[in-house]
Simulated scan of single mutants.
Amino acid sequence: MSSVWNLLNPIRNGATGLKLLSSGRELFGTVIQHGKMDKTVTVKVDYRYWYPKTKEFKSKTSKYQVHDSENFCVTGDKVVIKSMLPISTMKHYYVRNIVKPFPRDTYYKEGQEKKEMSEQLKKEYQRLYQEFYEREQQRTEIKNKKDEVTLKSALKAKALTRAMANLRKVESTQKKKDKVRSKSESRREQKSLSEAIDSKLSKEI
């Protein structure tokens, strides 16, 4: 008899080139990390077990390093993992199939936004560091290489802190503008709706 998690039409089977067991343990979990190691994802599995001392069910969470031969899984996927012969000290499971895939377009959109934010932070950091360094060169006289290294490290930390603060300020300003715009649009819609209702009532009268 097949396991309850062995679905009739699995989306994919990640068992290519592995030494599989004829019968093994199958678990249902969620991918919480991917891309950190090649062909490896971290899967979180939740358990419920009976605790006889207090006579109640308790929950427990375990994390597993799971083999994903095609690097297909992303964070948020609901997957079934199955035991196999160990291929490393940490990997004893492979991705059997994906039950509920996380939307790829949402994931890649968030990744693109993070990439753009990091590029903006890098540009702002470089601009501020150059500005601070030129200002300090005019103010103070650098006597030796040690003083220069100390000054550069202090200015780098200062520039990074200021760049992050500037980006947060820009982001909060943009959120406020979006909020005001959405409010004005909703008011405009309500006004147009009320005008349409008034015109309809006047025609009926």
Rank of each mutant, 00 (worst) to 15 (best):
M1C: 10
M1Y: 12
W5H: 05
N9F: 15
R12L: 04
R12H: 11
N13T: 12
A15F: 14
G17N: 08
K19A: 10
G24M: 00
R25H: 05
E26V: 03
F28W: 03
G29V: 00
V31T: 02
Q33I: 04
M37R: 06
D38T: 08
K39C: 01
K39Q: 08
T42G: 06
V43G: 00
K44R: 10
V45Q: 07
W50L: 10
Y51M: 12
Y51R: 15
T54M: 06
T54D: 12
T54I: 11
K55E: 14
S59H: 15
K63H: 15
H67V: 01
D68F: 11
C73P: 03
V74Q: 03
V79T: 08
S83L: 04
M84T: 00
I87G: 04
M90E: 15
M90A: 14
K91Y: 00
H92F: 03
Y93R: 01
Y94Q: 01
V99I: 13
F102D: 01
K109E: 01
E110I: 15
G111K: 15
Q112F: 15
E113L: 11
E116K: 15
M117F: 14
S118R: 13
S118G: 02
S118T: 12
E119Q: 11
Q120F: 04
K123I: 06
R127W: 08
Q130H: 08
E131L: 09
R135C: 08
E141I: 10
E141P: 02
K143H: 06
N144P: 02
N144M: 02
K145P: 01
K146Y: 10
D147Q: 09
D147M: 07
D147T: 03
V149T: 02
L151A: 02
S153R: 09
A154Y: 04
K156T: 03
A157E: 14
A159L: 04
R168W: 04
K169A: 13
V170D: 05
T173C: 03
V180I: 13
V180H: 04
R181V: 12
R188Q: 14
E189F: 08
E189M: 14
S194A: 13
S202D: 12
K203D: 08
I205H: 09
I205R: 07
